[in-house]
Design a protein around this nucleic acid. Structure first.
Lengths: 213, 213
DNA sequence: GTGTGTGAATGTTTTCACAGCG
DNA sequence: CGCTGTGAAAACATTCACACAC
């Protein structure tokens, strides 16, 4: 049915969860149908962009009416891959790692940290966020047993490549890293780097340019 | 000296903290000088892009050598506005709010939550992450007393506009919101929306397209 | 020789504008 | 009529390629 596959810009993929999020808000408000106009207002983007983005995946709208909220929601969930649960392995149970283990929203949105690993012997065997911290040597076995598809790397910069290698060795194809260091991975493995501080650090640039306060 | 001001693309601003981060790693390694080539390799971007980005702000490199790590670091910190401490007010001490109060990296990087607010009477007066939770009615007074320049909004979607209005009313010009709902603000106020889940939610798209596993 | 800074060229993303459908 | 879906145009961002400085 859909041809889809390769030529969809990455920015478009990045926006899909945003649409989905707004659709979930609309569902809560019992809105049945929404136009690209209305979505655009709520998300502060142009209606044309929303229509074009969605058109990469199919024709979900009805002319003269708009988009059926529930239907579009379901379609997007399928496209993004959120119509299933995803098991994740956490490498590194330091500050960020612990915060992730305690972060309730993960489970709410279908992501579950089902195993945690560290190299610190002091931590191994301890319990955190419902899982027992394991030695990294058990990674491969656990990935298979627990059907883990996503790796989350929360180790210091110097250890990132090592952690990534471990995950890649177990057949993991999607890795979220909490330090933006470059990593060497086969081309079919996707590493996404996030830093919770970057958003703050870009705002100060603009604060400075507002004239003296 | 610098003309700077308006015409610098926002994507460039977003990359500055990334450069700064890599420079801090290089400093730890006692590297004195680095080329755009080397930076590019480490950050997985083209040298040309790095040079062009930096050239928006001045000429920091030396031909034939590269960039002096410490000097460039210092310059970038000045440009981004990280050569000072920033006081922040948190609105909403729920799950995300509490996580932020406990997040050590904030202070390490020069950001400090110096006041927290909520409307829940059960929370007001309690202590969290070193600050006492206050009634939002005290916001204005506290913003002035504590020289607060950044607001962090961690309240449910339906309350975001209200919280943002409060902050804007106190003269706050930079707001970080943990839900990507559109907000109405004067044009000199910058609202940045972050959702810690979006990075995950885009990876599953690509996971699905890797052929059956 | 080596690597920056930068116009010009190329590539990508967004917006426009309108045909066509409900 | 109103609103989608979409080629074509405009805006924007990245990369090239080279003169010049060390």
């Amino acid at each position: 049915m859909s041809n889809a596959q390769s030529q969809i810009p990455e920015v478009v993929i990045f926006r899909l969860p945003i649409y989905l999020y707004m659709l979930s808000l609309l569902t809560e408000e019992n809105t049945e149908v929404v136009s690209s106009q209305e979505l655009g207002t709520r998300l502060q983007m142009t209606p044309a962009q929303i229509r074009k983005d969605l058109s990469y995946f199919g024709k979900f709208g009805k002319q003269g009416k708009g988009y059926h909220v529930k239907t579009l929601s379901a379609e997007l969930r399928k496209i993004i891959g959120l119509d299933q649960e995803w098991n994740m392995a956490l490498i590194g149970v330091g500050r960020i790692g612990k915060a992730l283990l305690d972060y309730g929203n993960l489970a709410l949105r279908g992501f579950k940290i089902v195993a945690a690993f560290d190299i610190d012997p002091q931590l191994i065997g301890k319990k955190a966020g419902g899982v027992i911290i394991q030695d990294t040597r058990e990674l491969s076995k656990t990935v298979n047993n627990k059907d883990i598809k996503i790796g989350v790397v929360a180790v210091p910069p110097t250890q990132v490549q090592k952690a990534v290698d471990l995950l890649v060795g177990c057949g993991i194809k999607a890795i979220l890293s909490y330090y933006p260091v470059a990593t060497n991975v086969p081309s079919d493995v996707r590493v996404r780097k996030v830093d919770p501080m970057f958003a703050l650090q870009t705002m100060t640039y603009y604060l400075r340019r507002l004239g003296p306060v």
